[in-house]
Amino acid sequence: MALWGSIVNVLFIIIGSLIGRLLANIPESMKNTIMKGIGLTVSVLGIQMGIKSSNFLYVIISIVLGAIIGEWLCLEEKLNQFGIWIEKKVGGKSKGNIAQGFVTATLIFVIGAMAVVGALDSGIRGDHQVLYTKAVIDGFTAIMLTSTLGLGVVFSSIPVFLYQGFIALFANQINRLIPEQVMDIFILELTATGGIMILAIGLNILEITKIKVANLLPGLIVIAILVSIVGFFKY
């Protein structure tokens, strides 16, 4: 079943969010320290991913073009509006918590190579090990995020399932269209480009910056197109 890995991933996010909800009454000072710890961890993860690029020019072009497209489409604003809409529907008592939790968790869980590689493995080979690993990581992250940002984190499971599920369902077509060498380069550069965005999330959590990370998301599509074009002429 191509979607099984994504289903398990979603279940771990939901379970982690529910456990995190039980920890929501911890002291405010502890929440603040936990959030700073998450911010530092996410930042280091972003740096580790970002330096894996074999041609950083790809990353620069993707981030710049992605930012232009994202600003033009106002993706950050629309994602926040969707989060606020969810907040109104579920009757969030603490204004902004559900929207903030949804946006932050969605960006952390969706950005990164594990989602793509895991979904491709699920769809092509029926191997869900990568997504199982991601599920465990996302589950623990959901606990920490929900304990500090609120129940909005649980709604991030929706875009996670749609994103990974789409890739898994069309994995065979993707595998036939893209040569293995090009796919390897794409995964490497996607990891680096996603790492830059994850670093931005970490800096935002630390309140060092206020980067509109969602407006950088088109960079993930740009890197796919860029690598495919270069690979078409090279291989």
Rank of each mutant, 00 (worst) to 15 (best):
G194A: 04
M49F: 05
Y163V: 06
A119R: 03
Q129K: 12
V130M: 07
M183K: 11
S157H: 02
N204M: 03
G5H: 00
G16N: 05
L75P: 10
I111N: 09
I221C: 15
V103A: 12
I26R: 13
P179I: 01
V44C: 13
Q181I: 03
G118M: 00
I167W: 04
V117C: 08
P179Q: 03
V153L: 05
L65V: 11
I38H: 05
T104S: 07
P159H: 04
A224I: 01
T191N: 15
N25M: 05
G150H: 03
T33Q: 14
N97G: 01
H128S: 15
D121R: 14
G92S: 12
I26C: 10
K52W: 00
V153A: 08
L107S: 04
I26M: 15
S29E: 15
A67P: 09
D121Y: 07
R21D: 14
I34S: 09
E189A: 07
V153R: 02
L57A: 14
K210P: 04
T106E: 05
L22Y: 13
T133D: 11
A224F: 09
D184R: 09
I124R: 13
I225T: 13
G96K: 05
R176A: 15
I185R: 13
K234L: 14
M35H: 01
I34M: 12
E207P: 04
L120E: 09
E28R: 13
L226K: 03
V44L: 15
D184C: 05
Q164H: 08
V153I: 04
I26P: 13
N55S: 14
W4N: 13
D127V: 02
L75K: 02
A67C: 12
G20N: 08
G219D: 11
I158E: 10
L203E: 09
G219I: 02
F140P: 12
T148Y: 00
K78T: 03
P27A: 07
S17W: 03
R21G: 14
C74R: 15
L220P: 00
A171M: 02
I13K: 03
I201Q: 07
T141P: 01
G165D: 03
I178G: 10
I61A: 13
K31Q: 13
N9I: 01
P27R: 02
L151Y: 07
L145R: 01
D184V: 08
L23F: 11
N25S: 14
G70W: 00
S6P: 09
I143A: 08
N204L: 01
I208M: 14
A24Q: 15
F109L: 11
D184A: 15
K52C: 06
G194K: 01
I61N: 10
I174M: 13
G5F: 00
G126N: 06
L131C: 09
W85I: 07
L107G: 10
S53V: 00
